[in-house]
Simulated scan of single mutants.
Amino acid sequence: MTTALITGATAGIGAAFGRRLAADGHNLVLVARDTKRLREQATELHDRHGIEAEVLTADLATEGGIESVEKRLADPRNPVDLLVNNAGFGNKGRYLEVSMADELTMLKVHCEAVLRLTSAAAASMRERGRGGVVNVASVAAFVPRGTYGASKAWVVQFTQGAAKDLAGSGVRLMALCPGFVRTEFHQRAGMGTDNIPSWMWLDADKVVATALADLARGKQVSIPDARYKTLLGAAKLVPRNLLGGITSKTGRKYGPQ
């Protein structure tokens, strides 16, 4: 049985990855900050699917948290075959309305942690000649829309570059770029969602199913819904300077308030 490690595993897309991978027979390493929720999740997945679910409490906004997950990924006695870098969050407010400390914490989780955990996993995977990494980004990566979008753009560019460098090694890397997904993300950030049209919402389990299928096909970027593929295709036709104004206005109209 192969083993998958999932960060941000207790809710949303991370929890959906856990459900799907456990149902497919994978053992799991579940990573998040809340030990109680992790243990409850591990017990449920073990009882339902008969897999082994290891709990690793870690805050990826801290040096110690990142180091503990790096250590687990590098353990040759208990190899990880699939890494899902899903941990992330949003800050409420526009640029200069969010504290610098919160901005830097976002970059720590979205960029530094992704870089270090991907590197720890990929190094071990390359030695074995097999493995996969899914870095959860966002469609916000493709439009000029604040620090969140910028950090997710970094995830996409980093993942694509690393995937090219590891081509032929047996290690696959893919950036997953969903749109709005019904999770705890906006609630945790104190963002309202009543102004977001119903057609823009995606189901986490369907997002994960598409992501795993795209990873198996060797895709480097997965946009898991035709609606968002269409929107991003149209955005490519708009001049960059004009796109910035459009996305800013659209974000204020339809984005979390």
Rank of each mutant, 00 (worst) to 15 (best):
R126L: 13
R128M: 05
L104K: 03
I51N: 12
V134N: 11
T3N: 06
L30P: 01
E44I: 11
A235E: 06
A140L: 09
G251L: 07
N195D: 00
A22C: 03
S169D: 07
T105Q: 14
A234S: 06
G93F: 05
R130M: 12
R252H: 10
A226V: 15
S99K: 04
A226E: 09
Y228T: 04
E70G: 06
D81A: 01
E54I: 15
T7P: 10
F89P: 15
A42E: 08
R130N: 15
R145Y: 11
R172H: 10
G149P: 07
A16H: 02
L176T: 15
G129L: 06
R172E: 12
G131M: 09
D194W: 04
R182T: 09
V171C: 00
L176G: 14
D24I: 05
D102V: 07
D34T: 14
I6Y: 03
E127S: 09
R240I: 13
E70P: 02
A209F: 03
G233E: 06
W154E: 02
S248H: 01
G218E: 05
R130V: 15
V134R: 08
N135F: 13
E112V: 10
T57S: 13
R77T: 12
F89C: 14
Y95P: 01
E40A: 06
Q187E: 15
R39V: 05
A15T: 00
L202H: 08
L117E: 02
R172L: 10
S124H: 14
D225I: 05
K71N: 09
A120L: 07
T3I: 09
A16P: 02
A167I: 05
A22K: 03
G14D: 12
R20P: 10
Q187K: 14
A121Y: 12
V109S: 04
F89L: 15
V134T: 12
S138L: 06
K92Q: 08
A11W: 04
G146M: 06
F142G: 04
L117G: 07
T230P: 12
A140V: 08
E52C: 11
R39K: 09
A16S: 07
A58Y: 11
A53H: 05
M174E: 02
P239T: 00
V221R: 02
L202F: 07
V208W: 10
Q160W: 09
G245Q: 02
A137T: 06
R48A: 15
I196R: 15
